[in-house]
């Protein structure tokens, strides 16, 4: 049973019976007390299904040989409104442009998903993921290895059946 807000209007023009109102309230709470349908999600065992458009912590896609797909084009740090991406580009021994340093400060990130939207090679993605707890703050600056290790699903950013989210 989803939680809903029930709007009760004050009775107009008539004197309210406090006693009756109190008893009605008690009856209502009693009804809920014995109601076996609880809305709590027993988290570690049960999980809420999150929408495929959810924008969580990032993930870097990799090629089959384990290299990051990122080509260090610099569009994500450029478009990032919170300036949380640090990128230093370079060239590997095969002449491929790749990010020597790619860091996302997940604390600064506002999870707008624009990095994913702007990425020309579909490398950086925001993830469908919410379990991000760490023991130290510095663990929230995700470096390239960390981003590539993430294996949670990536965000769709929009619903294919409803692209304008109407």
């Amino acid at each position: 049973m989803p939680p809903t807000v029930k709007v009760m209007r004050r009775p107009e023009g008539v004197r309210t019976s406090f006693l009756r109102a109190t008893l009605k309230g008690m009856a209502l709470t009693f009804k809920h007390m014995v109601n076996p349908n609880k809305i709590t999600v027993q988290y570690p065992e049960e999980r809420m299904e999150i929408t495929p458009r959810w924008r969580g912590t990032h993930r870097m896609e990799t090629h089959a040989d384990g290299r990051p797909k990122c080509v260090a084009c610099g569009l994500c740090p450029t478009v990032c409104p919170s300036n949380c991406i640090r990128l230093v580009g370079g060239e590997d021994d095969q002449g491929n442009r790749y990010p020597i340093v790619y860091e996302i400060d997940e604390f600064r990130c506002i999870f707008c998903g624009m990095c994913q939207e702007v990425c020309p090679v579909e490398a950086i993605h925001v993830g469908v993921h919410y379990e991000n707890a760490e023991y130290t703050r510095d663990r929230f600056v995700y470096d390239l290895d960390r981003l590539m290790e993430q294996d949670h699903p990536t965000s769709l950013l929009w619903d294919p059946s409803d692209p304008k989210s109407e």
């Binding site: 049973m1 709470t29 809920h32 349908n37 609880k38 809305i39 709590t40 027993q42």
Partner: peptide, 8 residues
């Protein structure tokens, strides 16, 4: 309190 509020 939980039960009354539909919680566990």
């Amino acid at each position: 309190a939980g039960f009354i509020q539909d919680r566990y």
